[in-house]
Nucleic acid binder design. Structure first.
Lengths: 342, 342
DNA sequence: TTGAAAGCGATACCAA
DNA sequence: TTGGTATCGCTTTCAA
């Protein structure tokens, strides 16, 4: 069963391949007319024939000739990570609306893996790249920009790289309102647990926390406990244990995985919130509602983040917009975990 | 900055494009030698030159000529669904090992959306398709088979379609051991809540439950409460309310989302497990551990499912294996939610 | 072991 | 409005 080509359609319709190509690439105007320099009747007939024959464009051929592929690459650090899984889905849907096919690849927080994924997708003549920057990826991104491939950074900022679009959360504010909520509940010895990834989102959340502490004359109480993906389980255990000794009031947990980990350890140790520690978590999840006491947490506008990202890359591809920076606002979902302790 | 082509490399290395193509497509033997009909020294030199020039293959051109693309399509129902997000990641990693690029697209449990995604990816000359069947998708899958595109069904079976590989969970057994666990704890009035999706995985889990009930002389207690994605929240509320009235002992919840929903409603109503209802949930998640009482649940071997799927599609693409069916076993993670009620 | 040349199926350019 | 034809970059004969 050979595939139907544009030539087959041309023959069957009794016109040239040029005409068929015109018709097949024409946008349909709102009046139902096909926007191409072809007689409307001929155009309609060609379209009919193509459909009847089950014609499907060979993207490889089109891409080879035109240098464009109508596909974009999306490179989160890990597609199975809750946040990225959900935002990827939003991106997929919106991209689909615009007629883009999406190539996904996870970078695993590793520049080398990122480069490797980029190499792969670049071979596909992708029209644009949406990616979550990882540590030391400045050069990789710069290469894309130099190759004139539109880039939009998602979720994390990257200093010192020009010409890229950005769609970010106001992470400073996220850290600020989380800390404020804990302050309001009477906590003073407020700490953070964070990953030492050196990515802007975490750094800004930390900065928001620190600034709020300073503004409230609590500079001396600032303490950020660092951990890594690999050692998070044991680290959190010992951090919690030591925090009890030094009389820590509360924790602001700037990611979903840290929140889940802390809640898990607390449950294992028979600790409750807010009586033992007040906590504010991050990102939407069932766990906050199902824990013994409802846990306050910061949420990101996922749909808006995803949609904005696709709109921006699309406009950049079409040359309608330059590399803008768009910053969206976080929201606090209150919970018993950050209520008055007494 | 023009892209480096095979011709540029050929010129720079002083050989023909044919040779360059040979070298670039050669597999590296374990002895480090390049497996191609080219002088090893020439081959090494060509490779060097290519690397130095930053050559990257134009996949569109290669695919156009060869009809193959070294890419596979993966079509879950929803990439943001926990189960599919995690398995997609496993698939991505394994596919990457084999040198495949992965195109993802969510079908949303909708045949029309599935067809649309398939149409898109087919235009990419994909080498194979991994998909989770949705209701009434038999014709769509048959079309792929007729077009000689290797297909592996993931997670769900499809009757009446031949020539496709399958990687499934033993869902009958999953239903069976979940029910058995509840029986062991003394429950007799055991019910299920399930989606009316008419997909094999759910149907088999239901069958396993029913059979176990029948085997224990409890045929009269069999009751499956159906709901839909859209109405799950309100449905679960009323199901739980009525179940209290009729003295239901326990629920087997055959998906993660149903488990989370039931736990959420129970918490809202101030109900505890196992004293009000014993429960067994499905799929790995933090929520089972963080609920007041640890919740028993069935887990699937995700890594194995993902890896097996890629291995099978790869072997089918290479013609090394036919369309086999592989069934993996579920495991029960015990929890207080299914302990003796008294 | 090497190379020349024919296409793969579209799009783009130019001419009619 | 139409159509002829060169061309994109690679793989694949076939011949040397």
């Amino acid at each position: 069963m050979k595939r139907v080509t544009i030539k087959d359609v041309a023959n069957a319709a009794g016109v040239s391949v040029t005409l068929v190509s015109f018709v097949l690439n024409a946008k349909v105007g709102k009046d139902g007319r096909l926007d191409c320099p072809v007689n409307q009747n001929t155009a309609k007939r060609v379209l009919d024939v193509a459909n009847k024959m089950g014609y499907r464009k060979n993207v490889a051929a089109a891409s080879l000739r035109s240098g464009r592929s109508h596909s974009i690459a999306v490179i989160p650090t890990d597609i199975s990570n809750k946040f990225f899984a959900e935002i990827s889905r939003k991106i997929e849907d919106k991209a689909y609306e615009y007629g883009y096919t999406v190539l996904f690849g996870s970078s695993d927080e590793d520049v080398n893996k990122l480069d490797s994924v980029l190499n792969t997708v670049m071979a596909y003549n992708i029209d644009g790249v949406i990616l979550a920057p990882v540590k030391n990826c400045e050069d990789s991104v710069r290469k894309l920009v130099e190759a004139n491939i539109p880039v939009v950074l998602l979720d994390r900022d990257l200093r010192g790289v020009d010409g890229v679009g950005k769609v970010l959360l106001d992470d400073f504010q996220a850290g600020s309102i989380a800390t404020e909520e804990l302050l309001k509940s009477g906590c003073r010895k407020i700490e953070m647990i964070s990953y030492n990834l050196e990515i802007s989102s975490l750094l800004e959340r930390e900065r928001g926390y620190k600034q709020k502490m300073i503004d409230n004359g609590l500079a001396n109480n600032i303490k950020i406990n660092y951990t890594t993906y690999e050692s998070v389980e044991e680290d959190v255990k010992s951090i919690i244990a030591e925090a009890r000794k030094r009389g820590t009031d509360a924790f602001f947990l700037p990611t979903y995985s840290l929140s889940a980990q802390v809640m898990s350890v607390m449950k294992d140790l028979g600790l409750g919130t807010p009586e033992d520690f007040a906590i504010v978590g991050f990102d939407k999840s069932n766990i906050y509602k199902l824990f013994a006491t409802t846990v306050a947490h910061i949420i990101q506008p996922l749909s808006e983040l995803g949609e904005t990202t696709v709109e921006l890359i699309h406009d950049m591809i079409e040359g309608k917009r330059g590399p803008e920076t768009i910053v969206l606002k976080p929201t606090l979902v209150p919970g018993g975990s950050a209520q008055k302790k007494n």
